[in-house]
Amino acid sequence: MHKYILKRLLMLIPVLIGVTFIIFTLSYITPGCPATMTLGETAPAEAIEALRQEWGLDDPFIIRFVRYVADAARLNLGETYATRRPVMEEILTRFPATLQLAVMGLFISVLLGIPLGVISATKQYSLFDNLATIFGLIFVSIPNFWLGMMLVVFFSVNLGWLPPSGFETPAQWILPAFTLGTGQMAVVMRMSRSSMLEVIRQDYIRTARAKGQKESVVVWNHALRNALIPVVTAVGLTFGFLLGGAVLTETIFSINGIGRFMVQSINSRDNPVINGGVLFLALSFSVVNLGVDILYAYLDPRIKSQYK
């Protein structure tokens, strides 16, 4: 098992370097001189030139890239143009809100999606199954930024039940979490349904029934434990969508997270923040996927025993 985790960790390194390469290349091709952006158009030319020298902006691409990777490895993502504060610091103060939002979205998608998918599969072609399938398609298709706004219009403005913005109190959590979670809930539900349909036809399910096992145990223990294996992979991808979707959801609900910070920086062309944010979220996503891979091995003894 340790071998497996170690192997996964090692495989993470080239991916992270690759991601960093993409982000760096994008910042490299972005028009506009960072030194000018930092000091402002009106700054004296010598000051700008001095800062260019300090940051080594005239060095060749590859040297700048290596420096970028080395900085990133030391958790240094540069400074914001606007405040000249370290981007990492700004991101870390906002990360808890983003993480909380994404985790709540994950809870909604997993805790609702998996049971709904399982029930749908065990009652294939029933009214419940048909409705679940149709609503699943609808929820996958609704853009979450629009869903968020409509929820605000309905629940905050019309009914006055829930606050339209902020993320401090539990009442403020509900709308953003559902905005972010419903689409992925539908994804998880569809995935669970099809995986369950596959498993429920297997011979070992018949064996469990032939033992005299209760149908509920057959479904929720024997079948689900097998059906979850592919679903876990989907949930890993779901977390990526949730991190990405947080950008939009935070904007709608004025949540002070990384996503809203990035969107604000788009308007002020503060590219170090955008790139730093994307890099940071991509790294978080990779770490989550590493966790998913380990969980996967835990769920599927066939993988575990390969690395004994």
Binding site: T207, K211, R225, N226, D300, P301
Partner: peptide, 14 residues
């Protein structure tokens, strides 16, 4: 009780 035809698939893999 019953013994099934294909032992490769009649046991729960997990």
């Amino acid at each position: 009780s019953m013994i099934f035809q294909d032992p490769m698939t009649s046991l729960n893999p997990v």
